[in-house]
């Protein structure tokens, strides 16, 4: 590792530095991925722009739409009172990232920009139809998270652009979320598969009005299981319907074999964990009602 370190004190300064260094610069937030990648020689920026002095990006706003500053840490999400209700999947996903030491510094912005297909919070955000806002020399632009994630480690972020926030709407009544994860250990795990779901039921709680299913670690990016979602919407959510959604999701993902698991096992997990997360979500709606 060898680089120049810059410590901008505002978003404006950070963006100016980002514009100046372009491809040769990297923003540093918690560093839980970037420092390791640099040490492994995977990336070698000449300029590192540490955001630790930038204020204002570490806040959660939850009046009306929810807005997470890019520097909000996993530990902050985990302990945020606004996420104890229908948005509980955010807490569930943030709480299983690394240990406390990681979660105290790892940020939501870093997690998104790092674009690991196995990220844990990202599927939840995807299930919430989140958008991300980036600020660059050409000004601010807002993209859907789904569109932002383009490949493993790849995003639509332009060189020098700073992801400043992620935003999603509060859920309508009759909604809940759930997150489940499989890994070899019960902590300190990169997901073998993770599943985030969001369900909204109709007013009578008889049928599914809207469903979102997002899958981690089974495709080059975090993946929406759209066929499985369609199979739920408009349907009464019987166990058979949930299991069918699991089978469809298993069919539409594209896992690989790696040292953590085989593709076959990952599909089996998707088939199992999707209905499990949906069931949990349904129970939560029932409890809230």
């Amino acid at each position: 590792m060898s680089f120049e370190c810059h410590e901008p004190s505002s978003v404006t300064d950070a963006v100016a530095l980002g514009a100046r260094f372009g491809e040769e610069g990297r923003f540093l937030a918690g560093g839980t991925d970037l420092i390791i990648q640099m040490r492994r020689g995977k990336v070698g920026p000449r300029h590192v722009m540490s955001l630790h002095r930038v204020s204002g990006l570490d806040r959660i706003e939850a009046d009306g739409a929810v807005r997470l500053g890019a520097l909000v840490t996993h530990r902050t999400i985990e302990r945020c009172p606004a996420f104890q209700g229908p948005l509980q999947a955010l807490v569930e996903s943030a709480a299983v990232v690394g240990g406390h030491q990681i979660r105290n510094v790892a940020t939501v912005g870093g997690n998104i920009v790092n674009a690991s297909p196995a990220a844990d919070v990202v599927p939840v955000l995807l299930a919430l139809d989140a958008t991300v806002t980036c600020l660059g020399p050409d000004g601010e632009r807002t993209l859907t998270l789904d569109g932002f994630l383009t490949g493993p480690g790849q995003t639509a972020r332009r060189p020098g652009e700073l992801l400043t926030s992620v935003r999603f709407d509060q859920l309508p009544p009759g909604s809940a979320t759930a997150f489940v994860k499989a890994g070899r250990r019960k902590a300190m795990e990169i997901s073998v598969v993770c599943v985030a779901v969001r369900l909204t039921l109709d007013a009578a709680h008889a049928r599914c009005q809207e469903a979102r299913i997002a899958l981690g670690a089974v495709a080059p990016t975090t993946l929406r299981a759209r066929a499985a979602e369609r199979a739920l919407e408009g349907q009464p959510l019987t166990d058979e319907v949930l299991r069918r959604a699991g089978r469809l999701a298993a069919g539409e993902c594209g896992p690989i074999d790696d040292v953590r698991a085989s593709a076959r096992y990952r599909r089996l997990l998707v088939e199992t964990l999707v209905p499990r997360a949906l069931r949990r979500s349904l129970e939560r709606i029932g409890r809230a009602a």
Binding site: G31, T32, I102, V105
Partner: peptide
């Protein structure tokens, strides 16, 4: 925090 991945500058 893990001191191994925290730049001194931070």
């Amino acid at each position: 925090v893990n001191a191994c991945i925290l730049l001194a500058a931070q």
